[in-house]
Amino acid sequence: MGFISKIIEGLKKTKQSIGFKLKQLFKQGIFGEDFYDDVEAILLSADIGAETTFEIIDNLRDRMTQDRVADPDTAEKYLKEIMVEILGEEKLSFDSPCVIMVVGVNGVGKTTTIGKLANIYVKQGKSVIIAAADTFRAAAADQLEVWAKRANVRLVRHGEGSDPAAVVFDALASAKSKKTDVVLVDTAGRLHNKVNLMEELKKINRVIDREYPEADRKNLIVLDATTGQNALTQVKVFDEAVNLDGIILTKLDGTAKGGVALALSEQVPVFYVGVGERIDDLIEFDANSFVEGIL
């Protein structure tokens, strides 16, 4: 399946709800206060958040008055443009060897995403090793093992409850000796307000810096598209702890709009989106298709 069709398929449910409402609105072609109120409601219900929504609405209102827009198509085009501008676009690029640490709160799909990422890099002809540093959740490493097998990559794991930093240490040693291109580090899900767990994460981060200084470093946060405005806090706190390079937005195959990406992209770019459960259901983020999918 092609890339655009996939993201559009993933966002189809979204399309049916917001897109339909918006189309109706644009068709009416009356751009009074009611129109803006309705657009505002639609954007808000896509989890775009109050602040960003107000920003978009103000921006749209300005441009429409300035250009004296009266036809629905132009109005729609302007709205899309504004949203694409906010989202921006950046691709994840790194030099080999690279250590990619994947962080996030519980249940966002970190482990699954690691499996999918491994698959992507293997397909690009890179060698990959996974460090199962989620030693907290029951059976997390077992789950990862299944994914590692599917993607056909090596996995380093210790027992449950062992020191995650030690797992990472071993994985790095193995990567160094075998000259592996990409080390993917799965970490335990942690709520961002748990101070000691965030400290543990910082420790893992330091271990990577210290043990493999010559490697390129990327820290990615996985966010559940169904998450609301709390995603902002998540990104902020994880960024403070380990300096985030980008976002992976998962579970876009539900009815969740993932609109929080708009509020987030001003701080950290979105690199990938998860649109399904199969191993190749992780695709590069594309602002145009994303907005196209929503509207």
Partner: peptide, 12 residues
Amino acid sequence: VDSMTGQDAVNV
């Protein structure tokens, strides 16, 4: 339900 769910919680 994850209490961090956004607007979609209602649809779900």
